[in-house]
Design a protein around this nucleic acid. Structure first.
Length: 418
DNA sequence: TCTGGGGTCCTAGGACCC
DNA sequence: TCTGGGGTCCTAGGACCC
């Protein structure tokens, strides 16, 4: 029999930090968003203090942090990405069919003869990941992705593994499972279902009027209902190239001048261009935005516009020029800007890219970008970049509590004294 | 002082084609 | 008297995810 497991890392960002700081065991730990603005990850010790219900503004937590000696980290995505890859590699030892769903979770297709085997397999996954990478995970196993998600949630309350297969056990579990907690059912859909008097996963599963579900929740909702019934609608997916990509950030402080915004947007465009080249794609249009701080009183502004390219491009310089062109259009003087970003759209693989009829050899700085990529790969990101991005970058994100690049930077390896 | 960033999918409706 | 039918493509907006 084929089953699907959902493996999910516990408090992933916090767990990554704890690998290299064993003294933090049993201490509350939180990780902050970009700009140290809000807390976004919490260990169970931090949750026990009442944290973690949602994103929480860090400045509101300062007293609590002091009082309970909470360890605080700025987010270190380079580290988390690397640890994530290691976890996924361990999972691939269990099955060739692994779908990396996000940085901290993956679906794994597995085969087993009985539920007892499944339980043992789940435990083995947990042990191996902890032994090889040092990250604690929960494993939920069932017939479909949606059921595996539910099993995974329950696993955290049990032994770290929850197997949910046919029989009265599924029914009992679904009766206690709120419809809002089902994967794919958000706040809006939950309200609609509640109006039909559907409050639990079980009630959703046995609700007979599927046409009504289709109408209210579209195809998405109908497939979730089928998955609850054990019918596979959502198969494991192979990784695909991004159809949209971008880069945006909150600034360390409000920006007023066009000069600073030009720098920031140039950097965002560079980062996005890099992502595009990493997947060997080009884009045919881009957009950019700048906005004021919605949490502040005073006039609010959200400016956004786009440009198109006659031929596909992944050229950093061309994209920077595009971002600057957009900025001219959307910039309004006198405002304090808190955030900005660049988005790339109409992305296609480079080799499928339609040539420009009137420009047979589009100058895309192909070899220049290639060389820049090689240098930055070898000597570290931002070793070489367009001067348009600025040198000091005073607008940059605040990261006051950043940990080291323990696993990706030679100069930041952990030192061990013997 | 101070509130994240990066994605996906679906649908309705408009524009356009022959 | 009286003005088609069938289709594609694109976009904006909504909803959801981690």
């Amino acid at each position: 029999m084929k089953y699907v497991a959902l493996v999910d890392c516990n408090s992933f960002y916090c767990s990554c930090e704890k690998i290299f700081r064993p003294e933090l065991r049993n201490r509350p730990v939180i990780v902050l968003s970009n700009n140290d603005g809000a807390a976004i990850a919490f260990t169970k010790e931090a949750k026990a203090l009442g944290l973690g219900q949602m994103c929480e503004a860090f400045f509101k937590l300062r007293d609590l942090v002091k009082k309970h000696d909470i360890a605080v980290f700025s987010s270190n995505y380079t580290l988390y990405d690397d640890i994530s890859k290691r976890v996924m590699n361990v999972l691939r030892e269990f099955s060739p069919r692994v779908e990396v769903y996000s940085v901290d979770e993956a679906f794994v297709e597995i085969e087993a003869a009985s539920a007892i085997d499944l339980e043992a397999l789940g435990q083995k996954m947990r042990m191996e990941i902890f032994r090889k990478v040092g990250i604690p995970v929960g494993v939920g196993i069932s017939h479909t992705k949606v059921l595996a998600k539910i099993a995974n949630k329950l696993s955290k309350k049990h032994t770290g593994v929850c197997v949910l297969v046919d029989g009265p056990q599924i029914e009992r579990t679904l009766r206690d499972f709120p419809v809002r907690d089902i994967w794919g059912i958000g706040a809006r859909s939950a309200v609609k279902l509640n109006m039909l008097d559907i409050k639990t996963a079980y009630e959703f599963r046995v609700f007979e009027n599927t046409a009504m579900i289709q109408k209210l929740l579209t195809k998405v909702g109908r497939e979730i209902q089928d998955e609850l019934r054990g019918i596979n609608c959502l198969s494991l997916e192979a990784p695909e190239d991004k159809k949209n990509t971008g880069n945006s950030r909150s600034f360390g402080h409000d920006l007023y001048t066009k000069r600073e915004l030009r720098e920031a947007l140039a950097q965002f465009a560079s980062n996005a261009a890099q992502k595009l080249r990493n997947q060997q794609s080009v884009c045919f249009s881009m957009s950019a935005f700048i906005c004021t701080n919605p949490f502040k009183n005073g006039p609010q502004y959200f400016g956004e516009a786009g440009v198109r390219f006659t031929s596909g491009t992944s050229d950093t310089l061309k994209l920077i020029a595009g971002a600057h062109e957009i900025l001219e259009e959307i910039y309004r003087p006198g405002l304090g800007y808190k955030k900005g970003g660049v988005l790339l759209n109409h992305i296609v693989p480079k080799k499928e890219c339609q040539m420009d009829l009137f420009n047979k050899d589009p100058s895309d700085n192909g070899s220049l970008n290639h060389v820049v990529d090689i240098i930055n790969k070898k000597f570290g990101p931002h070793t070489i970049k367009s001067a348009a991005c600025g040198i000091e970058q005073e607008w940059k994100t605040i990261r006051a509590h950043i940990s080291r690049q323990y696993t990706t930077e030679w100069s930041e390896l952990l030192e061990v004294e013997l």
